[in-house]
Amino acid sequence: MNNQGMKQNNRLVNALFLAPSLTAFILVVIIPFFMGLYFSLTDWNGAIQDKINFVGLKNFSVIFSDVKFHYSFLVTTVYTAANVIVINLVALTLAMMVTSNIKFRNFYRSGFFTPNLIGGIVLGYVWQFIFVNAIPGFAESMGIESLTSSLLGKGSTALAAIVIVGSWQYAGYIMMIYVAAIQNVPVSLLEAAQIDGANFLQRTRAILVPLVAPAFTVSTFLTLVNSFKQFDVNVSLTNGGPSGQFAGKVVKATEFLALNIYNTAFTRNRMAEGQAKAVVFFLVLVIVSLIQVYFNKKKEVEM
């Protein structure tokens, strides 16, 4: 077979391999995405409707003057920032720990990864019990006054609680990415540095971090996108509560964007408005991710 035929044959094989996932992707992502774009410009109500009317950008003008939506944006940003930092710090620390020479490190490895296997809804309810019943009950019997009221009772602490649960769930997964990256760092480099008298911090800063940078890119991207889209833990742990105030309106203190969109569409029955919010949500997510990947890529070092 000549080269030309081989290439064509390869192309066909590639296309065949791609076909199943591509079909699924088009069916459940691409088509609904464009349907969503269309619905965001109409007065669709989600139930049975005589006629769906085209209303232009009305939904967008409504949501841009919606204080609760602004607040959700703000609180989601705060959460995302906190979550990205906490998860990556914890994951990197864990990764360095389980790649060092400690005993039972393989056991730790699977142990830290396990929370990621539990669904977010279940996690949320389990942790709700821990925050509302277990910790205050324990604090009461131990006489620790500061912990007797639930973390979920106040907006700021409830946000911290979601960060705790979010990190607990996700740090193990990110840890695995760092573990893989750290194990790719040639031992000879580290040993040479050690012989030259570099201490642990110097070795970490000058050798480990630059060489692990591609993993940072992947991990920050994953945590950023995942935190921004946080929904399941949000619903089951706090359901957006408790209430708080923002710009003279009562808002739900931990109602993140995804939950706000869900509540707009399904609880308040304003489907088209929710869809418009989802479009804005998507655009912001794309822009933020692109910026983040662009800047992180610059820092990577090729071996």
């Binding site: 009772g153 509560g241 408790p242 209430s243 708080g244 808002v251 509540n263 609880t267 308040r268």
Partner: peptide, 22 residues
């Protein structure tokens, strides 16, 4: 009342009164 108005809009206001924020 409109869908969600009682639970989603008014409810949090009660919580504000309950917690002493207003």
């Amino acid at each position: 009342m409109p869908s969600g108005f009682g639970m989603d809009t008014l409810g949090p206001i009660y919580e504000q009164l309950a917690s002493g924020a207003v």
